[in-house]
Amino acid sequence: MRIAAVFGTRPDTIKMAPVVHALRFAAPDIHTTVCVSAQHRAMLDDLLQFFAIVPDYDLDIMTPDQSLTHISTRVLEGMGAVLAAAKPDVILVHGDTTTSTAAALAAFYRKIPVGHVEAGLRTSDRYSPFPEEMNRRLTTALTTYQFAPTELAREHLLRENVNANDIFVTGNTVIDAFMSTSKRDDLPHPKGWERLDPSRDIIVVTAHRRENHAYMAEMCKAFADIAALPSRPQLIWPVHPSPHVRPIAHRILGDVEGVVLIEPIDYAEMVAAVRSCTFVLTDSGGLQEEAPTLGKPVLVMREETERPEGVAAGTLELVGHDRAKIVAAAGELLTDGLAYERMARASNPYGDGRAAERIVGWLAGRLLGGRYPEAFRGPVSSPSSMPAP
């Protein structure tokens, strides 16, 4: 059986790396081809080296100020030649990237089945997050095999009339990657970590999403307020280079005591930072799943999350972009030991480190007649009680 794994951004490289390794471990029954789009060139290359993955095909599509239309068309065109040469029986794409949707469409045009890793995440608004929410919905429509990370994701797919026999709950592969990486003893802390006092609380911050650009100044003021709290916590923020983020962060926080603004960091440095911090304040997706693996509470600066399992399980708290709400939630975690322990000890609903193994085992069962693996069972037992998208 020939399987092609296609990815090209920082997040989906992290999440597909365990799948690539699991596929290669299954040789010779499975022949694995790796194709990268390089939608995120520099960040992709660093991660490929870190995870010891050498692509068979590199579309190298990234250009300055690339648009979503540019990414889509270049991936769609480039995948035609790759699929003709590699002749896969199945292609695997991940999540909600424009690379994944365009690659799935290219496969559909050639009647090649698509397997969607991290299928079924949903919000109630197709424009939030943008363009990720629509990307994942479109990819679902193009997919044959749906690898849902949680039971709730499976429920979303069933509501959209996806055949139940084509859905398999695996856990999230980001947990596989994070768990294995966090056990390494060679992880470097990011440059700037030495400016922090290890005897005081450390909060890791990430903030960059498009839907928060209009609120970035208020969020930065909230970070300054947190740094001024009586317990004197420290915040370290790898600032995104976006013109909607970087100038505002440096203008408001550049001279604030207790706030350390640093350049973007690589995956290994982020894992080391989370491993050593008190809690995480973020608007990203992956950290909502990753940080609870190490018992770190996560305050999510979004009005809605496509990962409500974490809210239900108690590993996440939605604080939105309101200045006062962000400060109040951070203050509670810093001063209320019981509130902190409730979040830190809550069971992570997103995986157990065996998602990639389950995906490969299920494909072998479906296409090669092997034994099907057991599905992942998370701590959230009644997904129907959560908000429907």
Rank of each mutant, 00 (worst) to 15 (best):
A5K: 03
F7L: 08
G8R: 11
K15D: 12
P18W: 09
V36C: 08
A38M: 08
R41W: 00
Q49A: 15
A52P: 01
D56T: 01
L92Y: 00
V93S: 13
S100H: 01
T101K: 11
T101R: 14
T101C: 13
A103T: 08
P113S: 13
V114L: 08
R122C: 05
T123F: 02
Y127A: 08
S128M: 07
N135D: 10
L142T: 09
E151I: 00
R154Q: 08
R154C: 04
E155S: 06
A164T: 11
N172G: 12
F178H: 06
L187F: 11
P190E: 09
K191C: 03
D197K: 09
V205Q: 05
L229P: 05
Q234S: 12
L235Q: 10
L235A: 12
H244T: 00
H250G: 01
G254I: 02
I265F: 02
I265P: 06
C277N: 09
E290Y: 04
A291R: 04
L294Q: 13
V300S: 08
A312N: 08
A324K: 13
A329E: 05
A330Q: 06
A330W: 02
E332K: 15
L333V: 07
R354W: 03
W362S: 04
F376E: 09
P383E: 07
P387R: 14
